[in-house]
């Protein structure tokens, strides 16, 4: 598994270095006060990344299994959970200013707690308590302004 992981990584890095270098060549520099200009340093970085990626591709395997710390059988479940957490966080971001801090946070806390195996009742209690508690802490104790939410007449 290690070899596969490192090979995959090496390939990705080579592509990245190529894209980075290509993007550097396309910069148009009308003038530059210093001899190196804005392109020189990125080129050095791209070259360095190519060298390191090639070393990674050619060297013998190190002992670490890849991907690290995951049982083969559980990988599908884990991936599904990672995607689910990201979906929750994305929706939280979208709802943050429209639904307002309190409502969007309560929903996000409930979903996250549930994804981390809290059970519905505990997740619900956690969501209500943490949303209200953190709102009080931020707004009243720390004097931070948080979005009220367009739904509730905020901006």
């Amino acid at each position: 598994m290690t070899r596969l992981g490192d090979r995959l990584l090496g390939m990705i890095l080579l592509v990245l270095a190529a894209v980075y270098a290509a993007s550097t060549t396309q910069m148009e520099v009308p003038f530059s006060y210093d001899p190196l200009g804005p392109k020189g340093f990125p080129f050095v970085l791209a070259a360095l990344l190519v060298v390191l990626a090639v070393v990674l591709l050619l060297r013998p395997a190190l002992g670490e299994p890849w991907p690290r710390g995951v049982l083969l059988a559980k990988r599908g479940v884990l991936l599904a959970k990672v995607v689910a957490v990201l979906v929750v966080l994305t929706l939280y971001a979208l709802a943050f200013s429209s639904l307002g801090y309190l409502l969007s946070s309560a929903l996000a806390i409930f979903a996250l707690a549930w994804l981390f195996n809290a059970g519905s009742l505990k997740a619900l209690v956690c969501a209500v308590a943490m949303a209200l508690g953190s709102y009080a802490l931020f707004v009243y104790a720390l004097d931070i302004s948080l979005p009220v939410g367009q739904l509730f007449g905020g901006r």
């Binding site: 971001a93 996000a108 806390i109 996250l112 549930w114 505990k122 956690c126 943490m130 948080l146």
Partner: peptide, 20 residues
């Protein structure tokens, strides 16, 4: 402290921090 209470806490702080 269970993980299901810790994770939402981290998420809240992260969002509020960046939003500020």
């Amino acid at each position: 402290v269970p993980r299901w209470a810790l994770v939402p806490g981290i998420a809240l702080l992260a969002f509020v921090g960046v939003y500020q």
